[in-house]
């Protein structure tokens, strides 16, 4: 069974440049895997700088541009948040290689992360996605901050909201049940950001 929510493009247009990083299920502790998120996010942001920005500006423009630093930071932030979310859900008992794919178009960036999900987490995730898609992002973002301030929960739920609100991104999800034995649920989270020419 496949379910799609929000802005999810099943067949991405052919892209000139893309990068995919895979993370096999491992027995490494979450603490150790966590360190890899920042490194992978740095790598994706550097890749973006190399292949996208350098195509648009000359070497001189590369040196001093504040805009480039801000774009680099945006790519790192989004990649890191998606990886953090995936690592929280990715369980070593789920035989799925989590992967993040980053596609570059002349006017758009698309991140798509795939990870396994335990069956009991699916319903809760659907409820949260419906909230993200049906409520006004700005209100929900500040409401969530106020709710978190009075809670001891370790989870903030601000990551996807900040991507939507602070970076005006569109989000979409595809849930798929793989016909394996036993069946495995995967979720693909897609983040699309329109870019202005540099």
């Amino acid at each position: 069974m496949t379910q799609i929510f929000g802005h999810f493009i099943e067949e991405l247009p052919k892209q000139e440049e893309y990068l995919t990083i895979g993370f096999s299920p491992s027995s490494l502790s979450l603490k150790k895997r966590w360190k890899n998120n920042g490194l992978s996010a740095d790598f994706i942001a550097d890749y973006f700088k190399m292949f996208f920005i350098s195509n648009q500006v000359d070497d001189e423009g590369m040196n001093n541009s504040i805009l480039i630093d801000n774009l680099w930071n945006m790519v790192k932030y989004i990649a890191n948040e998606l990886l953090e979310n995936a690592m929280k859900f990715q369980d070593q008992t789920i035989p799925i290689t989590a992967k993040i794919e980053f596609s570059l178009y002349s006017d758009e960036l698309i991140f798509c992360i795939t990870n396994g999900l335990l069956e009991e987490k699916v319903k809760e995730f659907h409820v949260f996605i419906n909230k993200l898609l049906s409520e006004e992002t700005e209100n929900l973002y500040f409401q969530m901050m106020r709710k978190n301030a009075k809670s001891d929960s370790n989870v903030s739920r601000l990551g996807l909201l900040s991507i939507m609100y602070d970076y005006s991104a569109k989000l979409g999800w595809k849930f798929e049940e793989l016909q394996t034995t036993p069946p495995v649920m995967t979720v693909n989270t897609m983040v699309s950001i329109k870019l202005k020419p540099l």
């Binding site: 106020r146 301030a149 601000l158």
Partner: peptide
């Protein structure tokens, strides 16, 4: 760099002080 959990820490602090 600050991830979303860090943003949460900052907003928690400000709400704690003010409200």
């Amino acid at each position: 760099f600050l991830n979303s959990s860090g943003i949460n820490m900052m907003t928690k602090f400000v709400i704690n002080v003010s409200d």
